[in-house]
Amino acid sequence: MISPSDFITIPFDDAVNSFVHGFLVPYFRPFFRALQVPVNELLMAINQLFTVVPMLVTTAVFALLSWRLAGRTMAIVTFLGFCFIDMIGLWPETMTTLSMIITSVLFCAIIGIPVGILVARSDIGWKIVRPILDIMQTVPSFVYLVPIVMLFGVGRAPGIIATIIFALPPIVRMTNLGIRNVRGDLIEACESFGATSWQILWEVQFPLALRTVMAGLNQTLMLALSMVVIAALIGAEGLGGIVNTGLGRLDVGLATAGGVGIVILAIVLDRITQGLAEGRNGNLSLRRALMTFFRGQSPDRSSDPDTLSGREKAA
């Protein structure tokens, strides 16, 4: 049987090797090194915070957040879960993982939301960005671990950069979707009052897209969590490191302990961000989300449709 390889063979792997070794690494390594400086700084600051603050205070803060955004049951689950993590002796690793996740999600938001807004306003932009997002989501993360190690070295910051690549697509997609789904007549109304495109974005599009953006943030967070173990392969430590160690030593107990820690962290973070995304009332703005947070209830529950129409009839 004849096949094309009988005539032409392409040394694809050699080409990639020479591109990375001969071009990227010698010329761009300083550039990539510089890239991880802000990541490192932020990570250190957050990690420092979680190290300094006593375990019980951190737990209390997260329990309070859960209570306001996800209900009382979730607050109890958070409290017990965090206590359990402490009792099985994984508190410092959990805090390392948590600070890595917060760092990578923050960077995803900082990069992803503006990109999402930009591509929502330009169809050409979306056509360019969409296949890139598809590639980011489909390429197995192990594939880019190697070049990342070559360019960034090993440690937490390269782990976070791998996580950012993996977790970025949902927030870009959802921001784009949220902005595009804002009703056309609302945009027309804005324009008819002489709003600039910046005013339209800030006053109407972004606030109305916020729920969808928050849903994207939630997905990004979940993806970031799922990268914890993989990032640990390149020395990112934390709970992922525990799992890897357990794996290496065939220590079932240790691996399970690390896994349980990740699961508890995932549940708590998921519920808190979902609470942020859904809010308690139909339309959420940042201000109202904060009001909801501090009052523990919808800011204008008194004016829901039923009571209002009742009042109308009475009047």
């Binding site: 009703r183 007549d185 609302l186 027309e188 109304a189 324009e191 008819s192 009052f193 002489g194 006053e203 109407v204 606030p207 109305l208 139909g282 339309n283 959420l284 703005s285 109202r288």
Partner: peptide, 18 residues
């Protein structure tokens, strides 16, 4: 012109829900 002279009322109200 839009800011000073002319404004518009829409069929489906187009009020900002937030």
């Amino acid at each position: 012109v839009r800011r000073e002279k002319i404004s518009m009322v829409f069929q489906h109200f187009a009020l900002f829900p937030h």
